[in-house]
Amino acid sequence: MSTASSSSVHPRAVLLGAQAGAVVLPVCDHYSGVEARMRKSLALQAEMAEEFGACVFDVTLDCEDGAPVGGEAEHAALVTELALAAAPDMRVGVRVHPVDHPSFAGDVITIAGRAGHRLSHLMVPKVESVEDVRVAVEALEAAGAEALPLHVLIESPLAVHHAFEIAAHPRVQSLSFGLMDFVSAHGGAIPADGMGAKGQFTHPLVVRAKLEIASAAHAYGKVPSHCVVTEFSDVDAMRAAAKKAANEFGYTRMWSIHPSQIRPILEAFAPEEGQIQIATKIIAAAAAAAWAPVSIDGTLHDRASYRHFWQVLERAHATGRALPSEAHAWFASSSS
């Protein structure tokens, strides 16, 4: 019997009862709204899933920016068909219009009503308060999509103020930061470079918003998702921004708006090989000790540190990293 199976209790059951780390999602959320790009995104998702042995990024089909004015209903029907046609083990979400937009109700009826069972999530933009979340939940329930997780976009100073209340709602699974609208909402008080790859990490109001959203998400065991980098042709800028989001701002997921951004995000959010080896060693020892405290290389570990190192392994798996043989049993199936 392998060390990984020496305890009958799976690490998730022991270590993730606390809110921290309760939700694990792919670290990259890729957005597209034009039909040709949506189809290419879904094809790329399937190709990379075969390459990595797991679905390593979400595809979110976009109605808010993707639907032509006057063609919202037709676009909703299109994304519904695309979602239904995706392979069952692929993660596909949809961004609908804001709750106060005339097309919101139609989006939900068409998309969630027909494909809610197939979607990984529904993204609701421009959420200002928990009341907007309630409106979205009521619409989903009326459409028969009672179990569909909600992802929300925080895009204004008022929304940032309410971030903790929004994150506390049980249907909310992830909070995303909408950088462009956030900067625009300040009426010119934040300069344009606050939307850039560098300025968004230095302007105090933008930095404060990012930290508030990340903190609110972690407070309730939800996933904070970092905003886009519009300079998609600058791979170095993209990689640097992703590393800052992951290592300095507490984000565990990030948006992609161009296929070239997906791999840099996966690389930036993936643990290093040394971290994976150490995490495997500690979790294997903990499992062998029935999750009692253990001493490894002169350092005492208990469930508090076990939780951290298990999250390292979860993130390694979510980013398609190779795991040591001792860890294979923990990820043998999604139902483990």
Rank of each mutant, 00 (worst) to 15 (best):
M1A: 12
P11N: 09
R12I: 06
R12E: 12
V14Q: 15
L15T: 03
G17D: 10
V24N: 08
M38Y: 07
S41K: 00
A49E: 00
F52S: 04
G53E: 11
C55H: 08
T60H: 09
L61T: 04
D65P: 02
A67D: 05
L78V: 07
L82P: 06
A85F: 03
A86H: 01
P88L: 01
M90E: 06
G106I: 06
V127I: 12
V133C: 09
E138A: 14
E141I: 04
A145K: 11
L148H: 11
I154C: 08
A159P: 09
V160N: 12
A168E: 15
P170W: 06
R171S: 13
V172Y: 12
G178V: 14
D181S: 02
V183D: 01
H186W: 12
P191K: 11
D193W: 13
D193T: 10
G194T: 02
G194E: 01
K198L: 15
F201P: 03
H203R: 04
H203C: 04
L205Q: 03
V207L: 03
K210Q: 15
E212L: 07
V235G: 04
A237Q: 00
M238Q: 06
R239T: 07
A242Y: 02
A242D: 01
K244A: 13
A246S: 10
N247K: 13
T252V: 15
S256L: 08
I257C: 03
P259M: 06
Q261F: 01
P264R: 00
I265V: 12
E267H: 10
Q277G: 04
A287K: 10
A287M: 12
P293S: 02
G298Q: 12
L300E: 13
D302H: 14
H308T: 11
W310G: 11
Q311A: 15
Q311H: 12
V312W: 05
E314Y: 06
A318Y: 04
G320E: 05
A322E: 13
E326D: 07
E326M: 01
A327H: 00
H328Y: 05
H328S: 14
S334N: 08
S334Q: 09
